[in-house]
Nucleic acid binder design. Structure first.
Lengths: 122, 122
DNA sequence: CTGCATCCAATTGGATACTG
DNA sequence: CAGTATCCAATTGGATGCAG
C-alpha cells in the first residue's frame, strides 16, 4: 500500500506506532500463532497459549478484535460458546509473527549460550 | 537448526518463551530496526527511536547484548563514545522485525478504520 | 463456558539529578 | 556523552469471586 502521508513507526506520535506496540507483543504473537491453526474456542486458546490467564487472553482478544485482526463469533448456547478467528487482515500477520516464534525456537541455544557467557563476564 | 529437544514457545516453561518475550516487544523491534542501518552511537539511537527514554534504551540494549543480539563498543574518549551493532545472530532478526514495522505502517489505515467501527459499535 | 469486576503484586517506564 | 541512581506513576498481569 502506498503511504499518503508516510507513516513511520519510529515517530513517537505516528498512529502506526500504536499498531506496532500491539503486534510486537508476546501475547499477541502467541494468540495469532495459535489462531493460525484455524477458528478456535476461548477455552482452547487458553490451552494452546500455555500460561495465559483468562484476564490477559480476554484483553488481548478484545484489542485484536478492535484492531480488525480477529473476529468474535458468539453462539447462543448454554453453556456459552465463543469462537475466535483471524480476519483477512489478521492472516497477513500470520507469517511475520510465526517467523518470530520460529526464530525464538530456532535460536534459543545461541541465546542461552550468549546469556551464560554474558553473566560469566559480569 | 534441528531441535533436540523440540523447543516450543507455546509452552510456558520452555526457554524459547523467554526469548520470544524479548523479541516480541516494541522497544526491541524499534532498536533492531534502527540498528539495521548499521553501527550507531547511543545518542543517535535515542534520536532514531523517537520517544524512548535513556533508561529504557539502556535496559533494552543491555538485554539485547546479554542475548547475543547486539554488541557494545566502548571508546576510551572524553566525552565517552559507545556504539552498538547487530551481531550475526541479531542480523537474522532484522527481516522478521522489519516485517513487523512495515506491517504496522502498511496496514495502519485498515487498523484505524477497524478501531473506529469497533468503538462506534460499543 | 465465557468473561467481567475487583483487588493486589510486579513490572515497566518517565523524570530528574548526578557521575566519570 | 553515556550512562547510573532514585523516586514515582502507569501499566501489566495474576487470583478470586461472581454472573449470564
Amino acid at each position: 500500500m502506498s503511504q499518503y502521508p508516510a507513516f513511520d513507526v519510529m515517530t513517537a506520535t505516528c498512529p502506526s506506532r500504536t499498531s506496532l506496540a500491539r503486534i510486537a507483543n508476546k501475547w499477541t504473537a502467541m494468540v495469532v500463532i495459535a489462531l493460525s491453526a484455524g477458528r478456535m474456542r476461548f477455552r482452547d486458546l487458553r490451552t494452546a497459549v500455555d500460561g495465559i490467564s483468562a484476564k490477559v487472553l480476554t484483553e488481548t482478544l478484545r484489542d485484536l478484535e478492535r484492531d480488525g485482526i480477529v473476529t468474535r463469533h458468539v453462539f447462543a448456547e448454554v453453556p456459552p460458546r465463543v469462537e475466535y478467528e483471524l480476519t483477512a487482515l489478521g492472516r497477513t500477520l500470520q507469517a511475520p509473527l510465526q517467523a518470530l516464534g520460529h526464530w525464538a525456537e530456532a535460536h534459543i541455544a545461541e541465546v542461552l549460550a550468549a546469556r551464560e557467557s554474558y553473566d560469566a563476564r559480569q
